[in-house]
């Protein structure tokens, strides 16, 4: 997987293209939508690729609509305009896409404590599922070291506040950190601000030591 940094935002070139084309899973699509709100450069890159995709739409083989299709839809048209997406849910560090789902910003979130210093909030998916993707917010206190873990599949993490280090690399707000199942890592949260990330995991994390394993059974993740 290639990662590149644009205007100091770490992103994934392949994921940008897959987002524009509609190739991503819902959780990944959601994360890319959020990153594009934080990074103008990512948004512009996506826009450019959407324009290419649109120009190819013109070449797609047309398939005729059913004979009564248009007439039937016209009969169902609602009255009035829709302004549903303009609900702002205030301003803050959470991208609008995320705020709209939560119904509020990050500061009003109800966190579920995992271990001292670490809390989670589900956004989409069930963390207790053996398989499948789950999307959640994770908050870790500044200065703490997360437990060593690997994954069954990929882990995508979009940093919303604070920062953390993995080896030589520091991930900050707007960065998208992708790891696959070949990596065991233990992010070290930088001192100071709490680090809040929007995280997508595929299946439960695989903890290296027994204490997090027990905690994991209790709280999920």
């Amino acid at each position: 997987m290639s990662l590149l940094s644009k205007n100091n935002v770490v992103t994934s070139e392949t994921s940008i293209m897959d987002y524009a084309l509609g190739n991503l899973s819902p959780a990944k699509h959601f994360i890319m939508a959020c990153q594009s709100e934080i990074s103008d450069t990512v948004a512009e890159e996506i826009s450019f690729q959407e324009e290419i995709a649109t120009s190819f739409l013109g070449e797609t083989q047309s398939v005729s609509l059913s004979p009564d299709f248009l007439e039937e839809v016209l009969a169902k048209l609602p009255e009035g305009d829709s302004d549903e997406e303009t609900q702002a849910f205030g301003r803050g560090l959470a991208p609008k896409t995320l705020r709209s789902v939560l119904g509020h910003g990050l500061k009003d979130l109800k966190w579920r404590s995992m271990v001292p210093g670490v809390a989670v909030h589900d956004v989409l998916g069930n963390r207790r599922y053996e398989e499948g993707e789950r999307l959640y917010l994770l908050k870790a206190k500044g200065g703490m070291k997360m437990p060593d873990h690997s994954h069954k599949g990929e882990e995508w993490s979009l940093i919303l506040t604070g920062s953390y280090r993995v080896g030589e690399t520091t991930y900050r707000r707007g960065d998208l950190h992708i790891e696959d199942d070949t990596v065991t890592h233990a992010p070290h949260i930088d001192k100071g601000e709490d680090c809040i990330c929007l995280v997508m995991t595929q299946g439960p994390l695989l903890m290296k030591s027994w204490i997090p394993k027990i905690v994991q059974r209790i709280v999920g993740i």
Partner: peptide, 17 residues
């Protein structure tokens, strides 16, 4: 049509909006 739970029915309204 996937395995994901709908935690919040509003979600896709957002993604699709």
């Amino acid at each position: 049509h996937g395995r994901m739970d709908v935690r919040d029915p509003e979600l896709m309204k957002v993604i699709a909006d």
